[in-house]
Amino acid sequence: MKPAPFEYHRPSSLADALELLADLPDAEPLAGNQSLSILMSNRLASPDHLVDINDLDELSYVEADNGSVAVGALVRHREIERSGTLAQALPVFPEAAGKIAGPVVRNRGTLGGSLGEGDPAGNYPCVAAALEADLELASAGGSRTVSADEFFIATMFTDREEDELITGITVPRDPFPPARTGQTFLAVKEAAQTWPTLSVAGAVRVDDPEDEEPVLEDARVALANAAEVPLRVPGAEGEIEGEPLSEAGLAAAGETAYEAVNPEEELHADETYKRELAREYTKRALTTAHDRAVA
């Protein structure tokens, strides 16, 4: 489990990094190395050049204004987990971060790496899909914005061009006023060290949390490890939006998720089982999000 040879570059500015990615053939960005190193050790990836972006302090930001929340690509899982700003504005992020491995992995792993990897089992891709986040991509030639929905194309395959870096994401805040919103991230894991069998990001906004039976104005559900991409399930959301939360609505949302997923079989999870998890966890996530919204 030793990687093939490569050349190593450690630029100190985003501009230099982008320059290197533009100039060097077969170059790969290196962030937390919590995924890439495994691929390289097994020689499933053997880039000729690694561009280490760990010195790009300009990608380590968490900013919130009234309109949106912006998180830089180099922000570590540990920082997301502990960010007061995110806990207040988008609590599903810290919750999702805290469910990645243990603290040692979280010290190194980054938001950008998790998104860049394009693993449909990843925690953040699923959150990004649920919250309709935009990914900011930059190259020597300029920058562009891609919605999460368009960014993830298939397993380990994204819309990112080889010379591009993800610099961060922005999430609109309008849909999630903290006082009327509840969010959650639930993961089914067999052990701390492994990836989830399935996980779900859920968010709910109600019209009036004080109301006896508040109406769900906006609901979001996305599932991880349930399809080739992080899977937003609009059909499930539609089943409960526009009315107060009901058993029947939840059941219908669950059924929709059961049908919507297209999971790969794994050693300890056959297709039917994953569908059942999708159904059950969709219901649980929406219930939890709802309960938090009205709490």
Binding site: M1, R10, Q34, S37, I38, L50, N107
Partner: peptide, 29 residues
């Protein structure tokens, strides 16, 4: 393991604990 799972290789790097099998020596320069 060299897979980031077992933690036997944990060291302090740059002020925090990290798994040294998931770092290249050049990164420690």
């Amino acid at each position: 393991c060299e897979q980031g799972v077992c933690g036997a290789c944990t060291v302090e790097f740059d002020g925090t604990v990290a798994k040294s099998c998931m770092l290249y020596a050049v990164q420690a320069d």
